[in-house]
Amino acid sequence: MLDAEGHCIYGLEAGITLLSLLERDILSKAGQKALCNPAEVVGVEDVELAPPIPRPPSFRDFMSFETHLRNSARAMCVDVPEVWYRAPAFYFSNPAAMLGPNAPVPRPPGADALDYELEVAAIVGRSGSDLGPDQAEDHIAGYVVLCDWSARDIQRQEIPLTMGPSKSKDFATSLSGFLVTPDELGSPGRAGCYDLRMTAEVNGRLYSEGNLSDLHWSFADMLAAASRNTTVLPGDIIGSGTVGTGCILELSGLHGLDTYPFLVPGDRVRLDVTGIGVIESEIRDADDVIPLYDPPPSRERP
């Protein structure tokens, strides 16, 4: 539990996890206990924050910002699919690749087009099946900042397979350090979307700027779609997808790679969503030196 000033963490007994509190539906009660009778109090600067849900039951990442969809389609020379406007769309990513807000991010071997993606994620608080949007709203425990790190050159090789993305995405996903409950964000605006500024900086330079209120599909819409014909569980992560201009793929398509180059080891990326949290990560080279894909075979002209 973080204090109101954001300086100290009020801890519960060893072994208690956020996921276990969600599973028992006692998050609010546990928060009050932490404030009134903490097992420990430590400064935020004195600890290394892990992801709030280190191993979620599942991780679905949606694409719910129309501007991102249009800019990405343009950058990748594909058409905007009309079906996107009929229902929220997502892919499953890797629950075992969650990183804390300050953990270094390994660049996959053979990847020369590493990208960040500026997102917000909802954390499911209660299980449910075949939820309507009105019901789904009550199943959201809170929100975190999410970065869906992406190897764009690997992604381009996966797209023709119509089975991805997979290896271009599953190596790392960063989460901000604290779950922010809906009551802390005030009243949502249009279609249940919060008016929250979202920014991304690379090496101190502002790259991306958007707003969570620009969502075309609300988190309630996304969670309802995720629960269709199945069951969502406490701790499941529902990513919003990238805010408009919230990645280098978009920015380079609009302004050129010379202006917005892809990430290299040593770069520092800062993602900030007002009222929810911050991710600050340094890019590192992975220890493994084996690339996923062999280079394409050379072809001699006849």
Score class of each variant (00 low, 15 high):
135 Q>L: 10
137 E>Q: 13
138 D>E: 11
138 D>R: 12
138 D>M: 05
140 I>H: 05
144 V>P: 00
144 V>Q: 05
144 V>M: 02
145 V>E: 08
145 V>I: 05
147 C>F: 01
149 W>P: 00
149 W>D: 03
150 S>L: 00
150 S>F: 00
152 R>F: 01
152 R>A: 03
152 R>K: 03
152 R>Q: 03
153 D>C: 04
153 D>W: 01
154 I>E: 02
155 Q>G: 01
157 Q>P: 00
157 Q>G: 02
158 E>A: 04
161 L>V: 14
162 T>N: 15
162 T>W: 14
163 M>L: 15
163 M>Y: 11
163 M>Q: 14
163 M>P: 07
164 G>E: 05
164 G>H: 05
165 P>R: 00
165 P>S: 03
165 P>N: 04
166 S>F: 07
166 S>H: 09
166 S>M: 08
166 S>W: 10
167 K>F: 11
169 K>V: 00
170 D>V: 06
173 T>Y: 01
173 T>F: 03
175 L>Y: 15
175 L>W: 13
176 S>Y: 14
176 S>H: 12
176 S>F: 12
177 G>M: 12
178 F>N: 09
179 L>Y: 12
180 V>D: 01
180 V>T: 11
180 V>S: 01
180 V>M: 04
180 V>Y: 05
180 V>P: 01
184 E>L: 13
185 L>A: 03
185 L>F: 03
185 L>Q: 02
186 G>E: 09
187 S>E: 15
188 P>T: 09
189 G>H: 09
191 A>P: 00
192 G>C: 02
193 C>W: 05
193 C>L: 08
194 Y>H: 15
195 D>M: 06
195 D>T: 10
195 D>W: 06
196 L>Y: 04
196 L>N: 02
197 R>G: 11
197 R>S: 15
198 M>R: 01
198 M>D: 01
199 T>Q: 15
199 T>Y: 10
200 A>W: 09
200 A>Q: 05
201 E>N: 12
201 E>A: 15
205 R>P: 05
206 L>P: 12
206 L>V: 13
206 L>I: 14
208 S>I: 10
209 E>T: 12
211 N>S: 10
212 L>W: 12
213 S>C: 10
213 S>Y: 06
214 D>W: 10
215 L>G: 09
216 H>V: 06
217 W>K: 09
217 W>S: 11
217 W>Y: 11
218 S>L: 04
219 F>A: 02
220 A>E: 03
